[in-house]
């Protein structure tokens, strides 16, 4: 159960694949990945996921797990405008661009919380003994035991 939740944090939808919910897992992987990386493509990888500039938004973004860590690593690898010799506007999104990109990535993270909770419930349901039948009723004690 915990492994499925951690797997869902690393890659949203992976936990569902691990517990056998293949189609559901693929839907989550596709939708969350598209949402997160659309946000990054709008705002640029350098500035969209930035724990130093937007700590509270980053708390939402980090819930997307592997995606946000990968975006952080890519942002660090790109370098600053001074290092690359590019105009800052070529690397850093401002105004509307910044708003939309941060909202997209943070909502992808929030959606992943929903996905993690869902995989926890489904994994617990699967671990319950379903083949044992319904729980005993009030007259269960009266029945004589055999064997």
């Amino acid at each position: 159960m915990v492994i499925a939740a951690v797997a869902s944090w690393v890659l949203p939808g992976l936990g569902h694949l691990l517990i056998g919910e293949r189609t559901r897992g693929i839907i989550f992987i596709v939708v969350v990945t598209l949402t997160f990386w659309t946000g990054v493509a709008i705002g640029g990888v350098k500035n969209t996921v930035s724990p130093a500039d937007r700590t509270l938004w980053f708390a939402g973004q980090i819930c997307a797990g592997g995606h946000s860590l990968l975006a952080l690593a890519c942002g660090a690898a790109v370098g600053t405008p001074q290092e690359t010799g590019r105009h800052p506007a070529m690397l850093i999104g401002y105004g509307r661009t910044e708003e939309v990109s941060v909202v997209y990535t943070a909502i992808a993270g929030m959606l992943n919380i929903l996905i993690i909770l869902d995989v926890l419930v489904r994994a617990e349901r699967r671990s319950l003994p379903m083949a044992a039948g319904p729980p005993p009723g009030p007259d269960a004690k009266r029945r004589p035991r055999t064997g």
Binding site: W37, V40, A41, I42, G43, G44, V45, K46, N47, C74, V78, A89, M90, L91, I92, G93, Y94, R96, T97, E98, V100, S101
Partner: peptide
């Protein structure tokens, strides 16, 4: 695509 921001 992921490096350059898109003006909106």
């Amino acid at each position: 695509w992921f490096i350059t921001p898109v003006p909106l």
